[in-house]
Design a protein around this nucleic acid. Structure first.
Lengths: 223, 223
DNA sequence: ATAGTATTCAATCGATTTGTTGAATAGTAA
DNA sequence: TTACTATTCAACAAATCGATTGAATACTAT
């Protein structure tokens, strides 16, 4: 197909670029970074038809970004590995740094008007072990089950209001969710602060935490 | 354009993916990672027409990956920043890990049949300062001029044969070039070893070296 | 000004991509 | 076996991309 080895390399890498060139596929990748999922679940989460979702998954598979296993009627897709999380992270870094439009969106929706300074991941583990902070996972319960920060409490965002009394008033609370473009931890911090809690966001989501080599606790056994 | 902030983010990031979805654009990015260049130079280096090259550069610019400055008749394009080098590195890591075809190409052309074990970047700087090793830059002279490893000698690959006597027989020689998909340092090591020199490759090229925060020496003043 | 050069823009065509539809496949449950 | 479900495949129209061509723009040199 290609004459020189260099051209062959770039052709292959361009396949990965092509896989990253569609917003729905990027959304699917972020969802899969949380936990493996079946096609129909991904379809409903992204608002796409099942056939369409299946095709996007084929493209991601051909680019080597996802893998799958079949269990009964369902095909479960998963991220190929943590390298994909790193790739998405690098994509986001470039975008926020050099795409003015993206920078504006991030500043508008994700930025720290309320001084929601993020806590760096490296400190959190030890401070949580020492009991200096309480870590809460505001993602849906199944994602918590598939893997979470050790010692973190699962409080899905919709339940936060009712379960405020489970949280300490004085100790600092660190909330995290899916990743840098997930609004749930922002919302959680905002809610907590308005009720007088000391709260901050974890600077990364669980996929970045895992990819950084930090330990992950898991409730469910892989089926 | 997009209803939710999350969708807006993914649309923007997909623009970057689209820019990475073409092999010629990837080649242009690697060339720009060495030094800034004018459109016609890029066109001849990639074997594309000038108009075609210009269009690819427009796309890269819209994706925020490159910038440009006009000097006289020429427009010089450059990489937007080191984050782009990191992004390309992450792309390569994913590709080599999960794309079987790419893995095969890399193993065939770039792998270490001759035990060309690469030297990690971190050690090179100090060992070069202590005079324990000699570092040679086998890229074209202008790329050396735009930035090189401190203390490295410029010996473009075509000149290596004639200039062998400049190199020490006993001290180890470390050769580097453009990056992981550049064959020049492999060729240099092969040549040197066949002549009885002790030689190894630097594991990264100059862009990765710079992006890692290691110091870079530059001969030419930016115009 | 005039001629000449580097680059970009605009128009074009063939190829590819996206999303939809409906049929085909592979498995479960009874 | 039969009925049912989840997923994939195949075919299609609309939109977009890639590369080519020739004209337009911006600058230099004289």
């Amino acid at each position: 197909m290609s004459s020189t080895p260099k051209a062959a390399v770039y052709e292959q890498l361009a396949r990965i670029g092509k896989a990253l060139s569609n917003p729905i596929r990027l959304e699917i990748l972020e969802l899969l970074a949380q936990s493996e999922r079946s096609v129909d679940v991904l379809a409903s989460m992204t608002g796409q038809s099942i056939a369409n979702t299946s095709q996007h998954l084929q493209q991601l598979r051909q680019a080597g970004l996802v893998g799958s296993r079949k269990q009964g009627l369902f095909v479960f897709y998963r991220l190929a590995g943590d390298e994909v999380v790193d790739l998405l992270g690098a994509l986001g870094t470039v975008g926020e740094t050099y795409l003015a439009d993206l920078h504006r969106v991030v500043r508008t929706y994700f930025s720290s008007e309320d001084a929601l300074e993020a806590v760096p991941a490296r400190d959190v583990l030890e401070r949580a072990r020492k009991g200096q902070i309480t870590v809460i996972d505001v993602r849906p319960a199944d994602e918590y089950g598939a893997g979470h920060v050790p010692g973190a409490i699962s409080i899905p965002l919709p339940e936060l209001q009712k379960r405020l009394r489970e949280l300490p008033k004085r100790k600092e609370i660190v909330a995290y969710c899916r990743g840098p473009y997930c609004l749930m931890s922002f919302a959680a911090v905002k809610t907590l602060r308005s009720r007088g809690y000391k709260a901050r966001r974890l600077e990364a989501g669980l996929p970045e935490w895992r990819s950084a080599g930090l330990p992950v606790e898991s409730s469910e056994q892989p089926r």
